[in-house]
């Protein structure tokens, strides 16, 4: 099955991004395709490459980057939400791209399932 995932909260503050990541990994392990993850609201904060968690903590941003590289997951950050919160091309982590809300709608249209994680 083709999956779309929506992440509405930032990393570390809320569990949403962790839950979404573990869901995506499990879906891929079951042979599904995670076609796109769309980051909206404070979820855009998952995409900054300036993130530096303590050594003994998970690196949420890099984890998404790795998932995108290994499984061709399209990580899309909403441009309007990103600009509001200071996420731009210049601080965008690898594997993410900034685009419009149409990308979320497209995921809803093209994917068999759209699963939302938020607050």
């Amino acid at each position: 099955m083709k999956y779309g995932i929506v992440v509405n909260e930032g990393p570390y503050q809320h569990q949403a991004s962790d839950s979404a990541y573990l869901f995506a990994k499990a879906a891929i392990a079951k042979g599904h395709e995670v076609w796109r993850v769309f980051f909206y609201h404070d979820g855009v904060n998952n995409a900054t490459r300036l993130t530096e968690p303590p050594q003994d903590d998970r690196h949420i941003v890099n984890r998404w980057t790795k998932l995108a590289e290994e499984h061709k997951v399209d990580l899309v950050v909403c441009v309007a939400a990103a600009l509001r919160r200071g996420i731009k091309e210049e601080n965008l982590a690898q594997g993410f791209r900034i685009s419009g809300l149409g990308q979320l709608v497209e995921a809803g249209i093209k994917c068999d399932r759209l699963v939302t994680f938020g607050d």
Partner: peptide, 15 residues
């Protein structure tokens, strides 16, 4: 507010 922004875009996709 941000939900309303998605609604307007979705309508433009003729859904």
């Amino acid at each position: 507010l941000e939900s309303l922004e998605v609604v307007l875009i979705t309508a433009a996709f003729d859904q």
